[in-house]
């Protein structure tokens, strides 16, 4: 079974919410990325999302944009990231996803990219600029390789949710609010209604992301979702500590309250 699906089943039995942590590959440098992912796991993250830096990250706010710029400055390329995932896999069975813009995949070739993911042990792809209307061209390959192509829903998806969420495995990524990634102090008051509505329309676990940055918010969203995703807050922390794995481990512990 796919590691992501298995993890959600395991957590469901234990009545726990999945904590999904994000780091940008190559920030501050690719040698650190594997250590940081393992540190997240040790800090209590259930699933890790690795961002492949892209020149034009349309769905990202300034924090993750800047992380991509730092990664490029460190000389990152996509092949390095696959090699890094391979190293992580030698040490850990944590479910791993790529957050990757579609041109990175399309440029490599949908089939080739998927098979490279399979080879190194990637379990899922989150492609923020590939809505349901366009996803089939990639999905034929990810389905065949048992890699989850995680569908995203937004507060404005409404009648689209049912069709978007029609998946056999993985989870549904619920974008908390309109806008790009980044730390937010406030969420739309309708956000809980929206999450309940998505939950009603799918049998798969739902995870919520965008703007979630502290323990209080992680706890709040745990009431309505099967998983909570933290990105920008982690990237900011990694930046401020110069990519120190120990510091990240305790930061994640603080978010998951696993210490």
């Amino acid at each position: 079974m796919n590691r992501i699906t298995a993890k959600f089943e395991e957590l469901k039995k234990a009545d726990k919410t999945a904590f999904i942590g994000y780091v940008t590959a190559g920030d501050p440098e690719i040698e650190k990325t594997a250590e940081l992912v393992l540190a997240m796991e040790q800090g209590g993250a259930d699933i890790a999302e690795i961002g492949i830096p892209y020149s034009d990250p349309l769905a990202d706010g300034p924090v993750i944009q800047d992380a991509a710029l730092r990664a490029f400055e460190s000389g990152i390329c996509v092949a390095d990231i696959f090699a890094c995932v391979k190293r992580i896999r030698e040490k850990s069975d944590i479910p791993l996803l790529f957050l990757v813009y579609y041109n990175t995949i399309f440029n490599a070739g949908n089939e080739e990219f998927t098979s490279s993911c399979k080879d190194v042990g990637i379990d899922g792809l989150i492609v923020p600029d590939l809505p349901m209307e366009e996803r089939d061209e990639l999905k034929v390959y990810t389905d065949a390789a048992d890699i989850c192509l995680v569908p995203l829903v937004a507060p404005t998806s409404k009648e689209r949710v049912k069709e978007i969420a029609h998946e056999k495995s993985g989870f549904i990524y619920c974008v908390s609010t309109m806008g790009v990634t980044g730390i937010r102090d406030e969420f739309n008051e309708n956000v809980t209604e929206y999450l309940k509505d998505v939950k009603r329309q799918t049998n798969l676990p739902i995870a919520v992301g965008f703007g979630i940055s502290n323990r209080e918010k992680v706890k709040f969203f745990s009431q309505y979702a099967d998983g909570v995703i933290v990105g920008s807050a982690i990237v900011k922390q990694v930046y401020e500590t110069g990519g120190d794995p120990e510091a990240l481990k305790s930061f994640i512990s603080g978010l998951t309250n696993n210490n």
């Binding site: 809505p131 209307e133 366009e134 995203l152 937004a154 507060p155 404005t156 978007i164 806008g179």
Partner: peptide, 20 residues
């Protein structure tokens, strides 16, 4: 119908699908 041959389409975040 959103494309010219294989070109065009709507490769955007889900948040934009409704406005589009």
């Amino acid at each position: 119908s959103t494309k010219f041959g294989e070109f065009g389409g709507q490769y955007v975040p889900e948040s934009l699908m409704h406005p589009l």
